[in-house]
C-alpha cells in the first residue's frame, strides 16, 4: 500500500540516522584512545549512506528510494601527533599518536544527524495523519 511505503521509507531514514549517531558517539568516546586490538590509535569512522530500492525486488530506477548504511569506513587521514612525553604510548621523541577525532566536527555531524532524524519523524507523522484521514472517508 502506498501510505505504508511512505512509512517504510521514513523508517529507513530513521535507522540510517540512528546508525550515524552511534558512529559519532563511538568517535567521540574514543577521541583519546591510543590502543586498539589492531594496534595503534583508534581511527575515526565514517558512515557511508546509499540509496536502496523502496521494495524488495524493485530496481533503484524506481522513483522513491529508501536509504541504507552501506559501509562504515575508517577515515583516510592519519593520527594526530601530540607532544606528551609522560604518556606510556609516547615514542622516543615524546610524541603520542592520538586519534584524528575533532570534537567540533563530531558535534556538528551530531547536530546534522539529529536534525535529519527529526525531519524523518515529521514525515512519518504526516504520512500517518494522511492514512488516518483516509480512514475517515465516508464516515
Amino acid at each position: 500500500m502506498n501510505i505504508l511505503k511512505t512509512l517504510d521509507i521514513c523508517s529507513s531514514g530513521l535507522t540510517a540516522q540512528r546508525q550515524r549517531l552511534n558512529v559519532i558517539a563511538e568517535n567521540l568516546a574514543n577521541s583519546h584512545t591510543t590502543r586498539t586490538p589492531q594496534g595503534g590509535p583508534y581511527c575515526r569512522k565514517h558512515v557511508v549512506l546509499a540509496t536502496r530500492p523502496a521494495e524488495e525486488f524493485a530496481s533503484c530506477l524506481e522513483d522513491s528510494v529508501k536509504v541504507a548504511v552501506t559501509d562504515i569506513a575508517e577515515d583516510r587521514q592519519g593520527g594526530r601527533p601530540e607532544y606528551d612525553p609522560g604518556h606510556p604510548d609516547a615514542d622516543d621523541k615524546g610524541m603520542v599518536n592520538y586519534p584524528n577525532v575533532n570534537p567540533v566536527t563530531e558535534m556538528v555531524s551530531l547536530t546534522l544527524a539529529s536534525r535529519a532524524f527529526d525531519a524523518n519523524v515529521s514525515v512519518f507523522r504526516a504520512g500517518r495523519a494522511m492514512a488516518l484521514k483516509a480512514l475517515e472517508i465516508g464516515r
Binding site: N2, I3, K5, T6, I9, C10, S12, G13, A16, Q17, R20, V48, L49, A50, T51, A54, D63, S64, V65, K66, V67, L112, A113, A116, A119, N120, V123, A126, G127, M130
Partner: peptide, 15 residues
C-alpha cells in the same frame, strides 16, 4: 507525492 518526499528526506545525507 508523499512517498517521493519521504524518499527525498530519507536520502538527505546520501552523496
Amino acid at each position: 507525492r508523499q512517498e517521493i518526499i519521504a524518499g527525498n528526506i530519507a536520502n538527505l545525507d546520501t552523496p
